[in-house]
Design a protein around this nucleic acid. Sequence first.
DNA 1: GGGATTCTGTTATAAATTTCACAAGTTAGG
DNA 2: CCTAACTTGTGAAATTTATAACAGAATCCC
Lengths: 214, 214
Amino acid sequence: MAVKSEHIPKATIARLATYIQVLSEFKREGTDVVSSERLAEACSVNSSQIRKDLAYFGEFGVRGVGYYVQDLITSIKRSLGIDRAWNCALVGVGNLGRALLRHREFSRKGFIIRGAFDCDPYKIGEVVEGMEIVCSRQLPAKVKELSLEIGVITTPPERAQRAANYLVGAGIKGIINFAPARIAVPKHIHLEYVDFFHYFYAAAFHIRFDDNRD
Amino acid sequence: MAVKSEHIPKATIARLATYIQVLSEFKREGTDVVSSERLAEACSVNSSQIRKDLAYFGEFGVRGVGYYVQDLITSIKRSLGIDRAWNCALVGVGNLGRALLRHREFSRKGFIIRGAFDCDPYKIGEVVEGMEIVCSRQLPAKVKELSLEIGVITTPPERAQRAANYLVGAGIKGIINFAPARIAVPKHIHLEYVDFFHYFYAAAFHIRFDDNRD
DNA sequence: GGGATTCTGTTATAAATTTCACAAGTTAGG
DNA sequence: CCTAACTTGTGAAATTTATAACAGAATCCC
Ligand SMILES: NC(=O)c1ccc[n+]([C@@H]2O[C@H](COP(=O)([O-])OP(=O)(O)OC[C@H]3O[C@@H](n4cnc5c(N)ncnc54)[C@H](O)[C@@H]3O)[C@@H](O)[C@H]2O)c1
Ligand SMILES: NC(=O)c1ccc[n+]([C@@H]2O[C@H](COP(=O)([O-])OP(=O)(O)OC[C@H]3O[C@@H](n4cnc5c(N)ncnc54)[C@H](O)[C@@H]3O)[C@@H](O)[C@H]2O)c1
């Protein structure tokens, strides 16, 4: 059992990702032990928050001492389910899809893009970063053959639903959708939307209207 | 005055971005009027949530009728401060930076990348999507000359702080950081972190541990 | 060895956010 | 003109999330 608690807030998951990032940095710097207070400062959160977030999954620290950096990284990774590799399918090999394919960090962090799919006949057969682009129709076969579990959608928005349908039909377990379109999937499929514009809108809003406040 | 209320939840801003996306889709389909109930369903949220989110900014609907799609899009855009163009500086023209530069949607939505900066002498002078890559040292001059307000960091993580320093020194007002590194900026600078791994981690976690729940 | 100090895990408290419930405004139809 | 059917905007209630406070455990130093 990886969790002690029933429901984990979405915000906690997001923060755990940040903790891993910052802890990895501490590790590179040669820091062996860190207190929740010090980690909190580096992550711009409250130290109770960190202890609370971790408490959802177990007891990873030592009272009077703090957290052993390497151990905590390992514990958080196990808690998140990223203590093993995940095979991913990339659907839509355009500008963004190529950037993702070429990004070494994904496989280093355990998310391995093992299949790249597109429907454009001019792209099929092309090799990007050692990976041959295959026709989307081969999704069912490839998902099975390569045990692909996570589908990454980087098609134009009007094609996102179709891509999702292929992925779901092929037996994928979760989808990360980079296209700015809402899609419908059966509720046992986990779905994450990544919309860059959220961040640009938030920046614009705060720059424009925060002047007097804050 | 764009807001009625003092503080707007971060989650509200994110949802408003979704509302715009879905409303634009309705508009394309030729729908003129929409109820909060119908919009809520398309956005997978509660209809009270929508009415509450909008209430932070004003009264945009008509009782007994609903919301006029085009009017609501306009109102939300004004509320978010995206009823005008924002000039952006892209720092780090690698895989991801290029994908962003080539993405037409940014300028269509009012975020215009007017300067592309890199420190690699082999890249300086190269033209990507009609934009000449300039040396990062020219940031102060260009930010002033082109009225750049938002800085987009797509450098490797270990260079993100330096890129941020350049941007802040040059007088930028907000930063969107795509590099997986925490950075420090003066508190009048608005900072958004975009970390793709958040989404991958969340997907992995839910796929692995949600089976019995939900 | 013991007292001071540090720091976690957890309970209690506070704050924020979401959902509910309904008065009030709108339209349509007879 | 009046009733029935809708739908918004909003205060109150419920829920969720974050912060504070502190008992319990470990270390250090004399
Ligand atoms: N490029 C960016 O920086 C960026 C930023 C934010 C969001 N996005 C979003 O990401 C998505 C991809 O953007 P892009 O710039 O890479 O677009 P793109 O047009 O360069 O690439 C889209 C690719 O998807 C393929 N495709 C279309 N339908 C398909 C289908 N049914 N099955 C498989 N492949 C299919 C196309 O052949 C093409 O290769 C878009 O939805 C875009 O809005 C992109
Ligand atoms: N490529 C992806 O799909 C992807 C996905 C998620 C996150 N990221 C993150 O985005 C960032 C960029 O990724 P990438 O794949 O484009 O890397 P990349 O190495 O292809 O590009 C980085 C660019 O930044 C430039 N650079 C380095 N230091 C600079 C400085 N001080 N000033 C200006 N330019 C500088 C480099 O010359 C290079 O052109 C990284 O931090 C990466 O972790 C990338």
